[in-house]
Design a binder for these strands. Sequence first.
DNA 1: CTCAGCTCCTGCGGGC
DNA 2: TGCCCGCAGGAGCTGA
Length: 287
Amino acid sequence: MPELPEVETVRRGLAPHLDGALIEALVLNRADLRFPFPPDLARRVSGRRVLTLGRRAKYLLIPLDSGETLILHLGMSGRMIVERRGEAGALAEFHHDVTRLPQHDHVIFHLEGGTRVVFNDPRRFGSLDLRPSENLDQAPALSSLGLEPLGNALHPEALTALLAGRRMPMKAALLDQRLIAGLGNIYVCEALHRSRIAPDRPAGSLKGREIEALVVAIRDVLAEAIEAGGSTLRDFRHEDGSLGYFQHAFRVYDREGEPCPAPGCRGIVRRTVQSGRSTFHCRECQR
DNA sequence: CTCAGCTCCTGCGGGC
DNA sequence: TGCCCGCAGGAGCTGA
């Protein structure tokens, strides 16, 4: 499910509830998600206070006052849901997420004051680790991640160096988290369309102005998606159960057969498969 | 090192 | 209506 904009949306939605909050208890309803949870996870988190939520690529970072940081990945189907205690004292049905199946509530943060934050993940491709906050970028999940696409690290010179000499198709290069970290299938398709680059172009073949256009396209599409609260196709929800709406702004993703939306282009959006994943693109304007 | 393919898991929508 | 199949926003691992 979630790519960088969705994770950033989750971070922003959770921050008012989690920043500075005391975790009275962390309850684990199973021993693993994609990977086994680290030893004594519940004990090491319970009773700790959250500092300020962060994000690296598609990872949500929850630093604790113990000097350790939770590193959480939502995988394909993970959701974070906030449930607050109602004014009458009973646990209120404040979340609007009626589609969520409670059997997939794998991890529950019980916060001071009765608020609960639930990590629900039907497909269990998500992960949760706990590592020292110092040198956090050395943690296994983070150590091989590439450039953060928002911020100053992603610029044409850096991208040129990353792509130089590579024969892999651009689609695969942009999905490779070791190069740029945070893009997924949707935003790769969208960024390539915006920059008019064909997804099967060898990565090392891009010219200077194409790289420049791609950098702008990546930044713009991510910023616009965050502004829209992410994209909801199937299971992505905000922490209160509400929906993102950037999916309405997709130009090519999941739009097979529709007219290409590029100004003056008379092409049709095509769907192809590259290394097992759907690619949506226009053969007329993407070269 | 690079890269394609397979794999984990559940849910849902389309086609018959 | 009901069932089956294919497909889904991720990414680690294997092996060529």
